[in-house]
């Protein structure tokens, strides 16, 4: 089902949280709402779920305006960050809860519960209580519960951020596989850019109640449109126009027209090429060994530059290098 968010606005006691936000989520699409805390992404998700009322704008699901519909009638499956399982119900009872509220037949509920638990890899653990399950397992139960009533959409509110890094990575790919298999349109809220890059078909990058940029992960990484996106997703070297004119004038060709200060060039660290060169203009200030990666800080024409090289770098502090850039993107400063 296709979801359209149309010009949603929301203020809490005079403070604007969402300021005219619009985007679309297509059939089977996995959309990530990405942004720093306080950017309004969770409020937006709650508005889609029907838990919070918007001040203005519409939520349109499958061509139907559901803005006035209460949460229970929206058919959304919602997974929260943590602590959303009923503590005195077993895993199976938790999963069956929405079906019981709908007064489904007990036999049907039982069958669906075990099917769903099986599906999220918890077959046989249905009799456990939440406090007898690990954090990752609890989130799987929450996921199964969200899917119980065959929702029109799946809404995930930072479902992985309370988990250990190892579990997080595993559950990340499992959620994605499940979502693809079920073909269910999904919106996930996260502040973790790596998670968004890894999972999303489309990222909606938000800042201060507005959408900064919408696009595929690759789009946002390679062609950020604003300084905020460039810095929030991945690492970026942001160079002013005057500096580019002196140091790497080749990039000026593609600069959009505008004042000197309106645009900056974003160079991703791995797109900077450096070579040992006794006559080079840059000097290596620091190298950090990260296993599969070396992170190098340069001083180049009075600016610091961050460079990443795959594998083990042979470069040492104080050595001189020449600098070139493979690709870059002009962003609004």
């Amino acid at each position: 089902m296709h979801l359209r968010i149309d010009d949603i606005a929301k203020a809490w006691s005079g403070h604007t949280v969402l300021d005219g936000v619009s985007f679309d989520a297509g059939e089977n699409e996995f959309v990530c709402l990405l942004g720093p805390s306080g950017c309004g992404k969770t409020t937006l998700l709650r508005i889609v779920a029907g838990l919070t009322a918007a001040d203005a704008g519409r939520v349109i699901l499958g061509g139907r305006d559901i803005s006035a519909l209460p949460a229970r009638e929206r058919r959304m499956g919602l997974v929260f960050q943590a602590y959303s399982l009923f503590p005195d119900m077993t895993a199976a009872a938790n999963v069956g809860y929405p079906m019981r509220l709908r007064r489904d037949a007990p036999a049907k509920i039982a069958a669906r519960c075990s099917e769903l638990l099986e599906r999220v890899g918890l077959g046989g653990l249905g009799a456990r209580f939440p406090d007898e399950l690990s954090g990752g397992q609890q989130q799987r139960v929450a996921l199964a519960r969200a899917l119980a009533t065959e929702p029109a959409m799946l809404l995930l509110d930072e479902p992985l951020s309370a988990l250990d890094p190892a579990i997080r990575g595993q559950l990340r790919s499992e959620i994605r596989l499940l979502q693809r298999a079920l073909g269910i349109p999904t919106i996930m809220v996260t502040h973790d850019q790596e998670e968004a890059l890894a999972m999303a078909d489309t990222i909606v990058c938000m800042n201060r109640g507005r959408i900064e940029q919408t696009g595929s992960p690759r789009d946002l990484y390679e062609r950020p449109r604003s300084r905020f996106v460039a810095e929030f997703i991945g690492r970026a070297n942001l160079l002013p126009t005057a500096f580019v004119r002196d140091a790497i004038p080749g990039f000026l060709e593609r600069r959009p027209p505008g004042d000197e200060a309106t645009y900056e060039l974003c160079l991703r660290p791995e797109d900077v090429v450096i070579e040992n060169d006794p006559r080079g203009e840059a000097v290596i200030e620091d190298t950090v060994f990260l296993g599969n990666l070396a992170r190098i800080t340069l001083a180049w024409r009075g600016r610091k530059l961050l460079v990443e090289q795959p594998g083990r770098s042979a470069l040492n502090r104080g050595e001189l290098v020449s600098v070139d850039a493979l690709r870059g993107a002009w962003v609004c400063a």
Partner: peptide, 18 residues
């Protein structure tokens, strides 16, 4: 009571009583 639990009941289709 975690707030998420309230919301979980609401999206599951429960009332204030639930």
């Amino acid at each position: 009571v975690p707030e998420a639990l309230d919301d979980a009941v609401a999206v599951s289709g429960g009332s204030t009583f639930h």
